[in-house]
Design a protein around this nucleic acid. Structure first.
Lengths: 205, 205
DNA sequence: CGGCCTACCAAGCATTTGCTTGGTAGGGTA
DNA sequence: TACCCTACCAAGCAAATGCTTGGTAGGCCG
């Protein structure tokens, strides 16, 4: 039956579709996008690999949907912080906390982004990943510069370098943090903010 | 001619062999181990894929040699630091600097380790990766605990968490640092040590 | 000159991979 | 009852992948 019906509703909860996406996200996060086969996904879902193509038209479509949905939510939160009237230090702290929350609530998506965004970004279809990356840089740099300007951050900071440190050090936690085990994401965010702002050295030590 | 001659000298500079390893390391670092094919390596070296098997008996052998050689050098340096008579703060600083030097001088090896060690570690052949990982943890935890004990570091630090932060934040720089472009690794190490020890907040800000 | 070694080629094999094709079973709806 | 929709199966294809096999060209050494 060629050329007849299109995909299932892209919108949201086709139920089954959403579950297949969750299964795929778990595998992508664990083994990487390219090292996860459509048969892996199908096996985990209890169907045959060909049956996946009733719901999605390619493996790429699956990551695409997973990543773009996640990014939308995340950046909505960043935008909200930027628009708030708080001071730079409070905004920076909130941005850090929002990121750790994302690691808690969207672990797989963050892991996929950290591991595969570079590679996926080379395809036209995923050009938005580079855009989002630039947007994220803009958020952090804006906050750091505001902090320096208003005197809550050191004046001798290399802004770009500081941005990279914060970005990497926050997101890389997805490698070892497992929701529900050990410290909560709020505990970790607390400690991280403390170290980032005041360092690990004993004052006057 | 089955069962006749073995591999080329595993020792060191067979010249050609060493160059093939460098080529392979570059590709592994750039695209990941599993996403680099033996044909990719052969193409980059200007030979046919089958010819690689004159020098190495498998793709795995190549990463194995690349990683184990690198790890040996790195941990020799850590051991030297631990054995030195300096105080905890100086030792911590030196450990950080040694790591950034490794990113400078062994960029590909560090990248491969960061990206593929988890996956490779699941094979018995690469069990030493887990050992080295534990050893590394021991180095950092020892230094941090000594720092807390001797009063140069805050007493309220979560040692394990601090270890993870330092480990991740140092090594993740391999993702964006390119030797010979922008800041030198010493500059970066300087800034990093400063942020790590004293934070980014303006004292009394 | 004869034997051996290093470094490679040419061809191909078995397996894995993403995806396609034609079909079926069950449920809802008119 | 007739029709359609969702969700799947069964079978397989073309390409890519790691690795094997038998062979060749050139250099060195006695």
């Amino acid at each position: 039956m060629p050329e007849t019906s299109t995909q299932a509703p892209k919108g949201s909860t086709s139920g089954r579709r959403a579950e297949l996406l969750r299964v795929a996200a778990g595998l992508f996060a664990e083994k990487g996008f390219r090292n996860t086969t459509v048969r892996d996904i199908a096996d985990a879902a209890g169907i045959l690999s060909g049956s996946l193509y009733h719901h999605f038209d390619s493996k790429e479509s699956m990551v695409d949907e997973i990543l773009s949905t996640f990014q939308e939510q995340l950046f909505a939160q960043y935008d909200e912080i930027l628009a708030s009237g708080e001071d730079a230090r409070a905004k920076l702290e909130r941005a850090v906390r929002v990121s750790f929350e994302a690691i808690e609530n969207h672990h797989d998506e963050v892991a996929i982004y950290q591991n595969d965004a570079d590679h996926l970004g080379t395809f036209p279809r995923f050009a938005y990943l580079a855009d989002r990356n630039a947007q994220s840089r803009q958020v952090w740099v804006t906050l750091i510069e505001e902090g320096v300007r208003t005197g809550v951050l050191r004046a001798d900071l290399d802004v770009t370098l500081t941005y990279r440190f914060i970005r990497d050090t926050v997101w890389v936690a997805v490698r070892w943090y497992q929701p529900g085990r050990g410290l909560t994401h709020t505990d970790i965010a607390d400690q991280y903010v403390r170290i980032l702002l005041d360092g690990i050295a004993k004052p006057g030590g």
